[in-house]
Computed example of a mutant assay.
Amino acid sequence: MDELEHRRVYGTDHDDPHPGPRDGHSYRELVGGPLDGLLVDVTGWSQEQLDEGALLITEIGQHGPGGRTEYSPREGSSELWDWRGDLP
C-alpha cells in the first residue's frame, strides 16, 4: 500500500470522507511549519512552478486567518517541500 494513501491533501475539508490523494494526481509532501505532513496536489503544474514552490493560505500560521505560509522544494528531493516561513 502506498505510504501517501492515508495522508490528507491541502485544501480538503476536515469532514471530507476522502481527504487523501486521488489516482492520477501528483503530490508534494509539506515538511515543517503549520501544514506539516499535508500533501499539495501539483497536478498540471509546470516545471517552473514546481521549482518555485508555493505560498499557501492557512489560518494556523503566524499571521492567523488569511495568512500565507511558504514552502519550496527540498534540495535533492523533488517530493518534499520544506517550510520557509509565514507571510501576512
Rank of each mutant, 00 (worst) to 15 (best):
E70H: 10
G44F: 02
R8M: 08
G33Q: 05
G37D: 11
Y10W: 14
E29R: 11
E3D: 12
S77G: 03
G67W: 06
H6S: 12
Q47S: 12
T58N: 05
Q62P: 00
I57W: 07
L35H: 02
R84Q: 15
Q47G: 09
S78Q: 12
Q62C: 03
L56H: 07
S72H: 09
L80T: 01
G24Q: 12
R68M: 14
D2E: 13
M1E: 15
T12G: 02
L87F: 09
V40Q: 06
E59G: 10
L38V: 00
G11S: 04
P73Q: 14
L4F: 01
Q62S: 04
G32P: 04
R68P: 00
G61T: 01
G66I: 05
E3Q: 10
D86K: 05
G76C: 10
L38P: 01
R74E: 15
G61M: 05
V31D: 14
R28Y: 04
Y10D: 03
H6W: 07
R84C: 08
H63A: 06
E29L: 15
T58R: 04
Y71D: 03
G76M: 10
H63R: 12
H6M: 12
I60V: 09
G85T: 07
H25I: 08
I60Q: 13
H14E: 15
Q47F: 03
A54R: 14
T58W: 01
G37P: 06
D86Q: 08
D41V: 02
L56N: 08
V42F: 02
G64S: 05
V40A: 04
I60M: 05
T43A: 09
R28M: 09
L35M: 03
D15M: 09
H6C: 02
D51S: 13
S26A: 14
V42P: 01
P34V: 02
H25T: 05
M1P: 08
V31C: 05
H63M: 07
R8Q: 08
G37I: 09
R68Q: 13
I57L: 12
A54G: 07
E52Q: 14
D2N: 11
S72D: 12
R84E: 15
P34T: 02
D36T: 04
V42W: 04
L39G: 03
G32A: 06
L4H: 03
I57Q: 13
G20S: 05
H18K: 15
H18N: 15
D36H: 12
S78F: 04
L87I: 11
V42L: 13
P19C: 11
T12M: 14
G33M: 07
L38D: 00
H14A: 14
W83I: 01
L50F: 03
D51F: 00
R7W: 03
S46K: 11
G85R: 10
R74Y: 06
D23V: 07
G44A: 09
I60A: 07
H63D: 11
H63F: 15
Q62G: 00
A54P: 01
L55V: 08
D16C: 06
S46W: 07
D86S: 06
L30T: 00
R28W: 02
P65L: 09
L35I: 00
H25S: 13
G66V: 03
P19S: 10
Q47D: 15
R28A: 12
